[in-house]
């Protein structure tokens, strides 16, 4: 492997400087980590636009991270809708506003609960899977082997996974919202009798574009952040099997944290714009 290919494929990635490293101040280590992560993100953007594209692998990843996550997110979404409705009913009933239950639950689900819960489940399932998979490939030198065989591992492993996660999380969040609303419908009908058409009309009564569009847009960023962090942690893993466990763990923890940080920023921006 010549120097140029090493530079191009990133095989000569420097050993990541973790905050736990005794020689580095944790604060300094944090900022170094941020810099490396930013460089990793820019490399992803650069590689995404550079041909050839790994389209088949991208579709396979979409199937794995999107379709295969659907059952888990669907069950979670249904339960969230059901539970939220049952929990909210007594409070609304106290004010004689039970008829507002579908509208209130719909706004909560569409604006916040659907996207955030889907993203957290996604971070747990997909983030850990990507982190562990790439880390094990790294520590067993499969990534190096790919470089030697002339394949661009960053493009094949990272670009496809981040792209798939970025596109699939919004899809999952929309389906989760719909299933959550169905859960809410079941919840409303446990102690009442509301037909489905009326439930849908009442649910959409308080919804506006400013509720739906920002909620969907932010899930693109959630998906991107989850996969970016997981790929970064996995791609830069070391210390053998311990490094694999650490990467999987960090991917979930940092992914979940990133979701809340991005959500806070998204709420502020939505509040300013709408």
């Amino acid at each position: 492997m010549d120097d140029a290919s090493i530079k191009k494929t990133g095989a000569a990635n420097k050993k990541p400087i973790f905050a736990e490293d005794e020689r580095i101040n944790p604060v300094t280590g944090f900022f170094i980590e941020i810099t490396l992560l930013t460089k990793f993100a820019f490399r992803f953007i650069r590689e995404s636009f550079r041909a050839p594209h790994e389209f088949r692998e991208f579709i396979r990843q979409c199937y794995l991270v999107g379709y295969r996550s659907f059952p888990l997110i669907a069950i979670t979404g249904f339960i969230m809708g059901l539970v939220l409705t049952i929990q909210s009913r007594p409070t609304l009933a106290r004010f004689g506003a039970e008829s507002w239950l579908p509208a209130m639950v719909a706004v909560s689900i569409i604006r916040e609960i659907g996207p955030v819960i889907s993203a957290l489940i996604f971070a747990g399932k997909v983030g850990s899977s990507i982190g562990a998979e790439l880390a094990s490939m790294k520590v067993t030198e499969q990534i190096d082997a790919m470089e030697v065989s002339g394949t661009n591992p960053f493009k094949y492993l990272v670009v496809t996974r981040i792209g798939a996660a970025t596109l699939m999380l919004p899809v999952l969040a929309i389906v989760a919202d719909a299933i959550s609303l169905y859960g809410a419908y079941v919840g409303v009908n446990i102690k009442g009798d509301v037909n489905f058409t009326l439930f849908i009309i009442k649910s959409f009564e308080s919804l506006e574009f400013s509720d739906v569009l920002p909620a969907v847009i932010k899930t693109f960023f959630f998906g991107f952040a989850i996969a970016l962090l997981a790929c970064y942690k996995g791609y830069n893993a070391d210390k053998g099997t311990e490094g694999v466990a650490h990467s999987a763990n960090s991917s979930v923890v940092l992914g979940s944290l990133a979701i809340f940080l991005l959500d806070m920023i998204a709420v502020q921006i939505t509040d300013l714009l709408f």
Binding site: G66, Y67, F70, I110, P170, V171, L172, I174, V175, D177, A178, I200, F204, L207, E208, F209, V212, V216
Partner: peptide
Amino acid sequence: FVTLSIALFTGAIFIIG
């Protein structure tokens, strides 16, 4: 799966619109 999601999103947009 993607078509279902897009259909749901379009339906929601249509109802709100």
